[in-house]
Simulated assay, not measured.
Amino acid sequence: MLQDARIVAGFTGAGISTESGIPDFRSPGSPWMRNKPIPFQLFLRDPKARREAWRRKFTMDDLYRGARPSAGHVGFASLVASGRMPAVITQNIDGLHQEAGLAEDQVIELHGNGTFAKCLSCGRRHELDWVRYHFERDDDPPECMVCGGILKSATISFGQAMPEEPMRRAQRLTAVCDLFLVAGSSLVVFPAAAFPAFAKENGARLVIVNREPTPLDTAADLTIHAEIGEVFSKFIA
């Protein structure tokens, strides 16, 4: 099936990164449940909420510091390098697809990127080491070094609008692919989870690799319930 595809759309979720040591948001006992992201509107209006959001952010960063790309990430990078997969659509915020060798424009990040911060006013990128230094020194998150605006991790929080350009790019890729390959997603978080269903309705074949069943298993042309790294190591060079 993979060998016959002309254009493959990759789609990844948390499961591809749990094999790198990054915890899943919804698993029982997940540290994410003790350090939940602060809702966007609360973050905007309350300085105390912003301080707590950064505290939780750095606590989680410390938990998976040193995480490296899994065999699944390397497998997707191999597919992109082959020329059959223009880009990977991901729900993840960890930057591990880029660490596996993909260029920034080969990763479509639907939920943003947690490896840096952005100013909510001017959009200026700020590195986390700089933010953390000032946060820990002053016990308060710093403001934008350019315009004095609010800094936030470059992720999409609950209540925050989805990023327009990544959504458009994901829609375009989904519309033209003839194979949609899902790895490590429960396919329950919308609007991201709508992409594989759209691809299938548009005539593409749908392959799902995930440890647990998903709502789209019965619609898929092939479903594999297994560890992602184990699967990809067998058929990706």
Rank of each mutant, 00 (worst) to 15 (best):
A197S: 14
G83D: 07
Q91M: 13
E143N: 07
Q106F: 08
A117C: 04
D138Y: 15
C177H: 00
R124K: 15
A193M: 13
R125T: 09
V189G: 08
V146S: 09
C119N: 12
Q171P: 08
A183R: 01
V189H: 08
T90F: 01
G114I: 07
D105R: 06
R124M: 12
D94G: 04
K118P: 03
K152I: 14
E109Q: 11
A81P: 01
S82F: 11
D178R: 02
T174C: 09
A175L: 01
H134R: 14
F158I: 15
C144M: 09
D138Q: 15
D140F: 04
N202C: 05
D138P: 13
L179T: 00
R169M: 13
G95E: 11
G203Y: 00
M167C: 04
L179P: 02
G112E: 07
C177I: 02
L179F: 04
R124V: 05
R124N: 11
E143K: 06
N113H: 05
G149K: 09
F195H: 13
E127P: 13
H126L: 12
K200L: 03
A197Y: 12
P166K: 06
L96T: 00
L181D: 00
C177V: 02
Q171W: 15
N92D: 11
G123S: 13
L181P: 01
V146R: 10
A103M: 10
L151F: 05
D138F: 13
H111F: 14
D129Y: 13
M167E: 06
V188I: 06
P86C: 11
A103P: 02
A170H: 13
I89L: 09
R168W: 03
R132E: 15
A100L: 03
V80C: 12
I108G: 00
L151W: 02
A204H: 01
D94L: 09
F116S: 05
R132K: 14
R169K: 14
R169F: 06
D138W: 09
A199L: 01
V188D: 05
G112Y: 11
A161Q: 15
E104C: 08
F190M: 03
L151K: 00
V88P: 05
A117M: 06
L181R: 02
C119K: 11
C119G: 11
M167D: 08
V107T: 04
A161Y: 14
I156L: 07
N92C: 07
F190A: 03
A194Q: 04
Q98Y: 06
I156W: 05
A117H: 11
L179S: 00
G148A: 14
Q91V: 05
I150G: 01
I150P: 00
L102D: 02
G95I: 14
I93Q: 10
E143H: 13
C122E: 04
G123F: 10
E99T: 04
K118F: 00
F135S: 05
G114Q: 01
I150N: 02
N202D: 05
S185Y: 06
F158P: 08
L173F: 05
D139M: 05
A154Q: 00
M85E: 08
P141H: 11
T90N: 07
L102Y: 07
V182S: 00
S186V: 04
R172S: 15
L102W: 03
P86F: 01
